[in-house]
Amino acid sequence: MRHHALWLLCTLGAAFSNLSTAHADRSFDVAMARPTMDAYGLQVVDRAQTPQQFEFGMTANIGWARAPLRLTLNDVNLNRAEAPFSVIEHQVTLDLGFYLGLWDFLSLSALVPVGVNVYDQNAIGDPSVTVLPAGSATMGSTMPTGMYAGQPRQNVAISNVGVRDPRLAVKARFYGGKYFEIGTLLELTVPIGDQSSFFGEANVTFRPKLLLGALLGRLHILGSFGAVIRQGSELYEPSPTTAQAASPPLRFATGHELTWGGALSVRLHRLIGLGLESVGTIPVSGDMVSPTASALGSLYILPTDKLRFSISGGGGLLVDNPRNAAGRVMFGMAYSLLPRAGGLL
């Protein structure tokens, strides 16, 4: 109804609708700059420091990303020639987290993320488009387009709002000295997220990380190295040409990945700190997979020892790849009822 030009062209493709693939898998979480699991981490880079025993804290983060999922797809408006699409034009995320220190060296944390996606409707399509009767025919038909093509008929369109996969984590600090710290974060995501709307993974993912930190007074240098172990997801061309119909091309996939992160933070004043953070992934399995890298500059405001606000801005470093948002802004809040000496930075 809303995209008449597209639908008229779609009628030409009606005859090919049965050629579409059922592989328009949408089980990808494309929020690649994920907030840290507790108040001791920076915006997106976790720190080895753990909360002290029975320290309870909360985090809240709001993020905005421009074009966090860009893919090359066939454009039905251009006779199914390949064209770049920002499948998700904008994404807003909200992450609410809680953590509790069990011992001085071990903590539990949970984070519930939700998201709002603004899609490119030309890429997404519509579950039911009316094709009016042609010529002397008394009856026309309806047909699905875009991501809905070739799938069981639905009345429900892709959701603009959805829950993403909740994150559960255990953090352990192996060593925490005056100048150096080392720890690990073992994170699990639960596949409750909306897999049909680019909000959730296909299954449970396991994301272990090794966390390192060099503490040079007001200057902290942090690093993390880890992996994402997941069931792969594959998105095939939803609108293949006649020649591609027998074997639609794979447009995007995810598999196991290595993860990295690095950060530099400096506390300029009791109330203010600055930081540079960067995170990324390197794929190790699957076809049509690609690395990601994001960089953020952060301003931390610490009105009290218990409270930290942060504002970060940046974007993807590999902008031609999927999942590298062109621009990103994040607002964070971290609160601890019983913080360690020195506060939350």
Binding site: T130, P133, T138, M139, S141, T142
Partner: peptide, 11 residues
Amino acid sequence: YRSLSLADGST
């Protein structure tokens, strides 16, 4: 689901 359409746009 709506499978058919008529000339006046109803389904």
